[in-house]
Design a binder for these strands. Structure first.
Lengths: 223, 223
DNA sequence: CACTGTGAATGCATTCACAGCG
DNA sequence: CGCTGTGAATGCATTCACAGTG
């Protein structure tokens, strides 16, 4: 994850100091701390956190140190407190972000069904699809609207984040509709590079790329 | 990912010289060259290739230089020839790789439906699911088998690559079944860290992580 | 004594910049 | 002249290693 997107400008001075990769892991820490909290774990060491997430203990400490000093020498980190602090830093504490989804196919449906988003305050408000057959049906309690209405709905519902889960050929057009509607952050799941103005933060997730590149290593090894 | 997985040992001496990130982009180049080839484009410059993929021209040249010298000064790269060379290097020229999918939910269905895999010689041979309701149904022409049979089927069908698209709680068990069946490469789509022996190459793709980490930047900017 | 927090060292990946070639 | 291929420079990210602390 790693990724799969390759460039991203940082804008605010506060954000510039924290490595991009670290911010990505920040949400990983939040996830794991949620889990530990429901398991009533009181303290956790960088070592244990690292093992659970497949990182090194030094990396966990370094990452957390970008945001402040949360630990206690000899004890580790207090789970509940660290969880609170990190959700606050991540910007998901005590508020919600509105999300719109373009593309109600299998991938879009998978995204809608993922419970983790709700838990982090990411709320799906709009779903659109190009297939006339699907218009009007509801999915996860949301009505599917036609793609032509995307820009309008984005504005109307004050959407913060756009999700692109449409076929490659439709992706750039949908992206433009998001931008016209005023979203400042987009996650693209179509396997194609999209053009956005520098004011919009674009992340791409390529479902296929890891699988496709594996052959390189398989072909080189035994058998 | 940036994408999203964080560690991966390289084993063969040939592979050690080529950066991991570059190999990931290798399949990106192959994709784009396929496209250019169907469009009957004869030559392409590093500049143009880069623009199309959202990279820099220097990076394209550097990446390709790891594999050999394919270009002509003043002209660029011959599309068809470069495409052939790269598919050969990627290990997808003139052969196929057998893939098994665990989890026939929305995400699994999206993966099965993606036409790009077939084009790169990645052939789905096995699909399993835990839901008794789904057993026996066919999906993209493949019958869904029960998860208990996974290890056996993997062996029987000589599966090279395993895909995990099951819920978090089932992921590690399914992973073990793949390993027991003898696969040496796994792509995991469940948002959890999996343990594998060093002989198995594991890649993780986290669908949610990019979206979840976006709030950090949104919260910090204007509005 | 177990663990954090962090300078300093290391290791990758990207970008610069330009010699050399067709 | 346009474009490749690549040393050298730069910039990030990770890891080491240990002083400092409850």
């Amino acid at each position: 994850m790693k990724r799969s997107n390759h460039r991203a400008p940082s804008r605010s001075p506060a954000a510039r100091l924290v490595p991009e990769a670290c911010v990505t892991r920040l949400s990983l820490y939040v996830r794991e701390l949620s889990r530990l909290e429901t398991q009533r774990v009181g303290y956790v060491s960088s070592r244990r956190l690292a093992q659970q997430l497949g990182l090194t203990d030094a990396q966990v400490r370094r990452d957390l140190s970008y945001f402040g000093q949360f630990g206690t020498s000899g004890r580790g980190y207090e789970v509940q407190r660290l969880h609170e602090q990190l959700t606050s830093i991540l910007g998901v504490a005590g508020r919600t972000w509105n999300v719109a989804l373009a593309g109600a196919g299998n991938l879009g449906s998978a995204l809608l069904a993922y419970r983790g988003f709700q838990q982090r305050g990411l709320v799906f408000k709009v779903v659109v699809d190009a297939d006339p057959q699907k218009i009007g049906r509801t999915i996860q309690g949301l009505p599917i609207a036609p793609t032509q209405r995307l820009t309008e709905l984005v504005r109307q519902q004050n959407i913060h984040i756009g999700l692109i889960a449409v076929p490659v050929d439709a992706a750039q057009a949908v992206c433009q509709q998001f931008i016209d509607g005023g979203v400042r952050a987009i996650v693209n799941f179509a396997p194609v590079h999209l053009e956005v103005p520098p004011s919009v933060r674009l992340r791409s997730v390529d479902l296929a790329i890891e699988l496709e590149s594996l052959a390189f290593y398989l072909a080189r090894n035994h058998r």
